[in-house]
Design a binder for these strands. Structure first.
Length: 782
DNA sequence: TGATGCTGCGTTTTT
DNA sequence: CGCAGCATCA
């Protein structure tokens, strides 16, 4: 029987000398690993990533290179070779989905369910776990509740108002964003730089942050940011505790390292100072969450942060065809801040990336709809088709089109199940029953449905609770024995308090799903929506049913509530064959045979705001987003761009995305537009053919042909391509050479004089509307 | 308490 | 333009 070459002790296995002798002896272990069936299907790089167990390791895993396989095999290897017991592995991911997949696939490899991997989970869930164990060290009790963004904002608003700050001028949302950013960077209120604290309410920023943190402790609550920051603080301020964790975690594994933010990095760094066996897996080219605190530099800096680190590149792509990979690689090569990888695929040939220009977003949707129908006739599964958009407003047009065509589709992403109003209300009821002192839950539902407990009654209640230093529920219990409240409010509050108490008494005797139904029913909450005649009321009732159904998967109410804040996801069981519609961001990690990428226009993609706010770094992140989009495709990818797009109900002409120019010609086919636009009625061919309006320096033969057909020879200059201008037919399509100082007429802006010209882009001082940038084809000489 | 009108905003989203 | 959130009025 032929065996793979004796890769027993690749030099990378023990990069650090002076390590303790291997348990069981090197030879014995070598025999064990060479035989291990789980290693057989790995390529040499994956295998190295698995077998380089000790010391810091960075696995740069390109798109589709079998990252998850390497990762789960690594866990399997550590367990099988007994380098660590399940409880000694720390494995962190960003999403619950990724954590579940890691758990399941490791189990598959080992051959049965892995038990005791208690430290496999998201950063947040592991943070919660640490905090619950030692909550008092950060000023919480172990049953602290977890606030979501909505609670957070309500709370901040109270604080802003209490501080006599105008909440309109200084919105709580904005403060929440600041606080989030501070927490992401590992800053407690006292560490906020003075300059930044000033950014909110003239210097009240840090103060409010401090007040908010205090309030959270009083409420025995933590927000999402705290789960990271407070668990970091817990470790940092308690050396003995830190030491015990450092000793516990013999091996650490971090998925999607490019998405880590500063606190996560600091947290990992602390823990890794123990055994030093930290393996981070990621792809700098797929870092697309910079805007919410992720710091690509973490991955770029890895070798500096962890001296002696071994860097392993996974560059064999098993997903995409040659052309798709070639196009994506060519595109991402335009980024400067990257470690650099060269992906290869053995899937030869296939179709080139199709690029097509269309008249407007309507035609784009029609065209893609047609393409999909054609694919479907050819036997293509709709499940294997995805449309990836940059911004969610782009989805509407596709949905409308698909409904007209009767083409089944599903939208992935969108508002989260547990963020819905009715779900949050229902959860507040359940929380209040389980955790009587949860003031936020109390506030939320004490008058939902309406019980006649208005502002006046609540003010008295709040005042009493504050002076007596008790929870709102305790305050209510006392108040109903007095005459502080009006008779009506008192009776109503009494009913409410008694209801909650009655339900609480049922916790141990009633199955929790049944109890939930009783609560929703007897509280009048269900009835409230049944009476509501608005269009979304039936949907809300459906969601409540879904909530109760989801609860059935947990042991009891407390168990359900513990998970719900962190783990609850929308129901998405496998259903019929449907086209997938989602944003590029939510497509990360997924793959499809065929991918449509609409809206590749300057301003939309790359998005103007990303560039305005983050400049070059923003542009590079947009480019990574394009790379993520392309690499989702196994066999076919088609990019479209529209010459006109309606934004905020204004028609804007657009020019093709610079990313199109960055795709290597050899992997691209420019499709000449089919007759799809013929039915536009009034908007005839001549207009469409005037494609030079959004011409680029794109240079494939097909493109040139298309250009020649359009009668344009000039290559407009590069430069910032934010061009606004309403699309209006010009009489003379050849009128494109204008001089500075020339007087012109524009359909929308009237008369003006040219202040500057840059290719076909003119800066004009209009007599009535001031300085504007317009395209030369929209102005006439005068 | 509910209805009505006004203002401001309009990229991506996990936990 | 369309929507959400808020304030104001009846």
């Amino acid at each position: 029987m032929t065996r793979p070459a004796p890769t027993t002790e690749p030099s990378g296995l023990r990069p650090v000398s002076g390590h303790q002798p291997a348990e069981g002896g090197i030879a014995a272990r070598a025999r064990a690993t060479a035989d291990a069936p789980y290693l057989r299907d790995l390529n040499p790089e994956q295998r190295e990533a698995v077998e380089t167990t000790d010391g810091p390791v960075l696995v740069l895993a390109g798109a589709g290179t079998g990252k998850t396989r390497a990762l789960t095999t690594r866990l399997t290897h550590l367990l099988t070779t007994r380098k660590a017991r399940p409880g000694e592995l720390l494995a962190v991911t960003f999403t619950n989905k990724a954590a579940r997949e890691m758990q399941a696939r490791t189990g598959d490899l080992i051959g049965n369910v892995v038990e005791g991997m208690r430290w496999l989970g998201t950063f947040h869930s592991i943070g919660v776990k640490m905090l619950r164990r030692d909550a008092e060290l950060v000023g919480l009790r172990s049953d602290f509740s977890i606030l979501d963004t909505d609670d957070q904002i309500r709370l901040l608003k109270q604080l802003i108002v209490a501080d006599n700050i105008d909440p309109k001028r200084w919105p709580a949302r904005q403060l929440a964003a600041f606080i989030d950013r501070w927490k992401n960077r590992g800053m407690t209120p006292d560490k906020v730089p003075a300059g930044e604290a000033f950014a909110f309410a003239n210097g009240k920023g840090a103060e409010l942050y401090g007040a908010y943190q205090q309030r959270l402790k009083i409420l025995n609550a933590a927000d999402f940011g705290d789960l990271l920051l407070e668990s970091f603080r817990l470790l940092q301020e308690n050396p003995d505790l830190l030491k015990s964790y450092q000793e516990r975690f013999r091996y650490m594994l971090v998925d999607e390292y490019q998405d880590t933010n500063a606190v996560q990095y600091l947290w990992l760094k602390l823990l890794a100072q123990g055994h030093g066996n930290i393996c981070c897996v990621g792809d700098d080219d797929q870092s697309i969450y910079g805007w919410r605190g992720a710091d690509v530099d973490n991955i770029l800096r890895f070798e500096k942060d962890f001296p002696g680190a071994k860097v392993i590149r996974l560059e064999r792509n098993y997903r995409s065809s040659e052309h798709i990979l070639g196009a994506a690689s060519g595109l991402i090569a335009h980024n400067e801040a990257r470690l650099g990888k060269t992906l290869h695929t053995e899937i030869d040939g296939g179709d080139r990336i199709a690029v097509q220009g269309v008249w407007d977003s309507g035609e784009e949707a029609r065209q893609i709809g047609e393409d999909i129908e054609q694919a479907q006739r050819g036997g293509h599964l709709l499940d294997e088709i995805a449309i990836l958009v940059r911004a969610s407003f782009q989805m509407r047009e596709f949905e409308e089109r698909f409904i007209t065509l009767g083409l089944p589709y599903r939208v992935i992403g969108g508002p989260r199940f547990y963020e819905r109003l009715e779900i949050r209300d229902a959860l507040a009821y359940l929380k209040l029953v389980v955790q009587g002192d949860n003031d936020l839950a109390f506030e939320r539902i004490v008058n939902v449905p309406k019980r006649g407990l208005g502002d006046a009654a609540l003010k008295i209640l709040h005042g009493f609770a504050r002076s007596a230093r008790v929870s709102l529920m305790q305050a209510a219990t006392s108040l109903i024995e007095t005459d502080e409240l009006t008779a009506r409010a008192r009776a109503s509050l009494k009913g409410f308090v008694e209801d909650i108490a009655r339900w609480r008494a049922m916790i141990d005797t009633t199955p929790h799903t049944e109890l939930a139904e009783i609560i929703l029913d007897e509280s009048g909450y269900t009835a409230m929506w049944q009476k509501d005649k608005s269009a979304n009321a039936p949907g809300r009732l459906e969601n409540l049913k879904e909530l109760v159904r989801a609860m059935g998967e947990y042991e009891n109410l407390a168990g359900f509530l513990e998970h719900v804040a962190l783990v609850m996801e929308r129901d998405s069981g496998p259903d019929e064959d449907k086209v997938n519609l989602m944003t590029l961001h939510s497509a990360k990690g997924l793959e499809f045979d065929t991918v449509f990428l609409p809206g590749w226009e300057e301003g939309l993609f790359p998005h103007q705001r990303a560039m305005d706010e983050s400049g070059h770094a923003g542009l590079e992140e947009e480019r990574r987003l394009a790379y993520v989009g392309l690499t989702r495709a196994r066999k076919r990818a088609k990019i479209t761009f529209a010459g006109n797009r309606r934004v905020h109900n204004l028609w804007q002409s657009a020019i093709p995305s610079r990313f199109l120019d960055e795709l290597p010609e050899a992997h691209v086919d420019v499709e000449e537009t089919s007759g799809g636009y013929g039915g536009l009625g009034g908007f005839g061919e001549s207009r469409f053919d005037r494609r030079q309006d959004f011409a680029s320096s794109y240079d494939t033969p097909g493109w040139q042909r298309a250009r020649r057909a359009a009668g344009d020879g000039a290559t407009p200059s590069r430069g910032p391509r934010t061009i606004e201008g309403e699309l209006v037919a010009t009489e003379d399509p050849a009128a494109s050479r204008h001089m500075v100082g020339e007087r012109i007429f524009h359909q929308k802006f009237g008369y003006g004089r040219i202040a500057a010209a840059d290719g076909n882009k003119l800066t004009i001082d209009f007599e009535k509307s001031g300085r504007k940038k317009v395209l030369d084809s929209f102005v006439e000489r005068h």
